[in-house]
Simulated scan of single mutants.
Amino acid sequence: MKVIDLTHTIRPDMPVYPGTEPPQFLPANSYEKDGFKETKLCMFTHTGTHMDPPAHLYAGRTTLDQFTAEQFIGKALVIDCCGLKEGEPITMAQIMKYGEKSAQADFLLFYLGWDKRWGTDSYFGDYPCLDEQVMQYILAGNYKGIGFDVIGLDPIADENLTRHKQLFKEKEIVNIENLKNLELCGDDLFWFSCFPLKLENCDGSPIRAVAWWEK
């Protein structure tokens, strides 16, 4: 079995969304004093490679713990968008290159190549985002989730979170942000899992996103 980790490591000096705080790793128990090590972790639910459910934007909508585990596993397809320049939209031209495979996937993962900017100021730049036609294509489909190797579904400048609201208004779907290594996944369907922590009334959670192929 071939396995690729698509997840950034959570660490105190990692990039975080503007206006939030980096995670804190606080010593709780030590080998010397207690005979074992335990750490108190303090962080936002949308830290690092993470997932948004509809409840992230809408009160009373589905939280991550309300989804069945089946929601977080399935077939994925990487949509190569790395040729787009800053500020260029992701269009149907990128998706149509994959023919019927795009409709057969449970997850569409958009590869911009921005994970290579992780840890630099340019990661917070004008990354490409979905245009309206692609949004309508996703909303009309039967996808479990979409994902990106950038920090947001919306541009950072869009404080209204227009695309988030459109995606979650009536759709039972998850949105994944801050993926990495999507260029290693090829141009065909593969197995993908993205399990979140099962937190009560969860508006978001870090995930361990993994791609794998059965030989």
Rank of each mutant, 00 (worst) to 15 (best):
L109C: 07
F110V: 00
Y111C: 13
L112G: 02
L112F: 05
L112K: 06
L112M: 10
L112C: 09
L112I: 11
G113H: 02
G113L: 14
G113F: 09
W114G: 03
D115S: 15
D115H: 14
K116R: 14
W118A: 05
G119L: 09
G119W: 07
T120R: 06
D121R: 15
D121M: 07
S122L: 09
S122N: 11
Y123T: 05
Y123Q: 04
F124D: 00
F124N: 07
G125M: 07
G125I: 10
G125Y: 00
D126T: 03
Y127L: 01
P128R: 07
P128A: 11
C129N: 03
C129E: 04
L130G: 03
L130Q: 02
D131F: 01
D131I: 10
E132D: 14
E132A: 06
Q133R: 15
Q133E: 14
V134Q: 06
M135S: 12
Y137N: 08
Y137H: 11
Y137M: 14
Y137A: 13
Y137L: 10
I138Y: 01
L139N: 05
G141T: 12
G141H: 06
N142W: 04
Y143E: 10
Y143N: 12
K144T: 04
K144S: 02
G145V: 11
I146M: 08
I146A: 03
I146R: 11
G147P: 11
G147W: 10
G147T: 06
F148G: 01
D149A: 01
D149W: 08
V150R: 12
I151Q: 11
I151E: 02
I151M: 15
G152E: 08
L153D: 05
L153H: 04
A157K: 14
A157F: 04
A157L: 02
A157R: 10
N160E: 11
N160Y: 03
L161Y: 04
L161E: 01
L161N: 04
R163E: 01
R163H: 04
H164C: 15
H164R: 13
K165N: 02
Q166R: 08
L167N: 06
F168R: 03
F168P: 00
K169A: 10
K169F: 04
K169Q: 12
K169Y: 07
K169S: 12
K169D: 02
K171R: 12
K171D: 13
K171A: 10
E172P: 13
E172V: 03
E172C: 11
E172K: 15
I173G: 09
I173D: 10
V174R: 09
V174W: 00
N175C: 15
N175E: 15
N175R: 10
N175A: 15
N175M: 13
N175H: 14
I176R: 09
E177F: 07
E177W: 00
N178G: 01
N178L: 12
L179F: 09
K180G: 01
L182P: 11
L182F: 07
L182V: 11
L182Y: 04
E183I: 12
E183G: 08
L184Y: 13
L184C: 13
C185T: 02
C185P: 05
G186A: 08
G186T: 03
G186P: 08
G186C: 03
